[in-house]
Design a protein around this nucleic acid. Structure first.
Lengths: 131, 131
DNA sequence: CCGTATCCGATCCGATACTG
DNA sequence: CAGTATCGGATCGGATACGG
């Protein structure tokens, strides 16, 4: 990943930070605590190891994720959100999650939300009534 | 832009909604009121008309932007943030803007922030002290 | 379980030319 | 001022194979 030095505005940097299909999802998955690599790969539907490592490396280089390695076997590595910038980005991702949910509610994708356990049937019900 | 129907989570949709180099910047530029096309093109450094129209079309199709055309000459069109989903996304973008600023402060890009009038010299000073 | 390397099609995006 | 069409290089992302 090339780090440029001619950014014209902060949002251009943020785009570099979270661009790609997986970055926000990876961050969101780590919001409740450190995760191992295999764990992330299991929990994120459709990702493969190459993409996961690639994106994690970039997130680390931008100071949103920290990596901690443990010696000995079995090998263990923990990836986690950084306290300052990572946490802040999670705030934004939480809002974006709401926007995505809103879109899904509007477009009759409620079943998917319940199946994937993003929301309970009751929560979907409540949100639909609020709209 | 292809609209898929097999999204596995809300954030995957959001990624489709704001992906690309320009979407967040375009939205941010409209946060204080409707904008014409030429106006946006002038204010967003580095964008060209083709990209602008392309991205606006996608933002409209996802319900984040509205377009209003006026009859007669000179031609006039207004693009604006939608009240529900667009406004919500602006909340997230505001936070992302802060993350970008934080990154710039940490990496000695303060001059750029002041030059582009993102922040005043005083605000930069204050934020640097907070860190 | 963790990480690296390569290949290759899909897409993104910038330049440019043209219309109402 | 607003919008469309096309072309080609750069980048992205999925599959797959291999090494610590």
């Amino acid at each position: 990943m090339k780090i440029r030095d001619d950014y014209t505005c902060p949002l251009e940097i943020v785009h570099d930070i979270i661009k790609g299909k997986w970055k926000t999802i990876i961050l969101y998955q780590m919001k409740d605590g450190p995760k191992g690599l295999a764990e992330l790969e299991r929990e994120i539907e459709g990702i493969n190891q190459k993409m996961l490592l690639e994106q994690l490396r970039e997130l680390i280089s931008f100071g949103l994720v920290e990596k901690k390695s443990f010696e000995g076997y079995p090998l263990r590595v923990e990836y986690s959100i950084t306290e300052r910038r990572g946490r802040k980005m999670i705030e934004a991702i939480n809002i974006m999650q709401m926007v995505g949910v809103d879109y899904m509610l509007e477009n009759g994708m409620t079943d998917a939300l319940i199946e994937k356990e993003v929301l309970s049937a009751e929560e979907v019900e409540r949100l639909m009534n609020e709209r």
